[in-house]
Design a protein around this nucleic acid. Structure first.
Lengths: 190, 190
DNA sequence: CTTGCAACCGGAGGCAACCTCCGTATAGTA
DNA sequence: TACTATACGGAGGTTGCCTCCGGTTGCAAG
């Protein structure tokens, strides 16, 4: 029931160290190649064996999620900061754009993470939920200010950002990203 | 310069037959499993060797595109029909929804196809362009009727449909599809 | 410092899917 | 019928995912 597969408690020093090194290597790789990273490459560039990588991150999915965790936390943080921005709608728009930028930078990393049916209580699941909740506050504020239609939901909005990133991910030109974003923004305005 | 890899001209009868059988098997598989079909399964279910499959469709991509070709043609056809529908905006909306339905049914088949940088003159490329052009007429008509903002482009719209499908593809629930679509429609209205 | 063992390491190897190569078979023609 | 361009098909090379288990080592107790 609580076998999460990866321990977070006190570990042997070498294990702790390897965990960090692997994660760093994974982040670097994801930043370049997106979610089609090659796990053996990461192990090699981290200077550990493939077996070690798999002990720390039993699944490709878990490794990707771990690299995404920081981003989720930062997006939550940004939302907190934007809560007090003068323009309610402007704050929401800025934050939604951040969603895309993060997603675009890490390629479809979000894809692997956001669509996964995370088991309740997972670290990544908690992070995603709290990020989304923070965004919901921004949305609500813009709605209360009468700038955004009241029937729009945060989940739809996030998934739309996600969709824009995905749809443009392998496209030769990125020139449609802004027009697509603009359509969505126009669509939530009152 | 004209080596397209797959001949379409006169072929031996057995080759012609195999081509059709493979394509039929591929279509059936794609309808079920989306774009993560297993080529050897398709060869087997078509009753041919894997080598034969690869001779007819040298690349996974080409096989997927071939299965998508029909849909592209049909979507073009539908656009032609809708040109004379009484409600200009309604016609556009109906057609955009068809885009999603086709994409959703064939899973992200569209993904593999629409984002690929097709070399000029490919059969699939021609089909995509003419489908898009037919949609552009619907869009223009709605714009001329003053129902859709004049600065919206058909390419953005298609890619948004594509993004909605992709973003929901592996999601456990499909309940966000309609809200997302509605936001986009609201976003193109005047 | 030494010892003992639980925790950890690492890579050989199994598996699955993609794709290629080439010896064999055959449709179509003279 | 005989000949050959065309086509067939599967063995096998390659890559990437993941597992298994013999060897190694941090570290705590004596």
């Amino acid at each position: 029931m609580s076998k999460t597969g990866v321990r977070k408690g006190p570990r042997r020093a070498d294990a702790q160290h390897n965990h960090e090194v692997i994660l760093a290597a994974a982040r670097a790789a994801v930043a370049v190649r997106g979610d089609d990273i090659v796990l053996e490459d990461i192990a090699r560039s981290a200077g550990v064996g493939i077996g070690t990588l798999y002990r720390h991150f039993p699944t490709r999915q878990e490794l990707l999620e771990a690299t995404f965790l920081d981003e989720a936390l930062e997006l939550r943080q940004r939302a907190e900061e934007l809560k007090t921005a003068p323009a309610a709608l402007g704050a929401l728009i800025d934050w939604l754009r951040l969603q895309m930028d993060f997603g675009a930078h890490g390629r479809s990393m979000g894809a692997a993470v956001m669509n996964a049916k995370h088991t309740e209580g997972t670290e990544i699941q908690i992070a995603c939920v709290s990020m989304r909740d923070a965004g919901a506050v921004l949305l609500r504020r813009a709605q209360d200010a009468g700038e955004v239609r009241p029937d729009v939901e945060i989940a739809s909005l996030l998934r739309l950002m996600h969709g824009i990133v995905m749809a443009n991910e392998h496209a030769p030109d990125q020139s449609l990203v802004n027009p697509m974003f603009d359509v969505v923004i126009a669509g939530i305005r009152t």
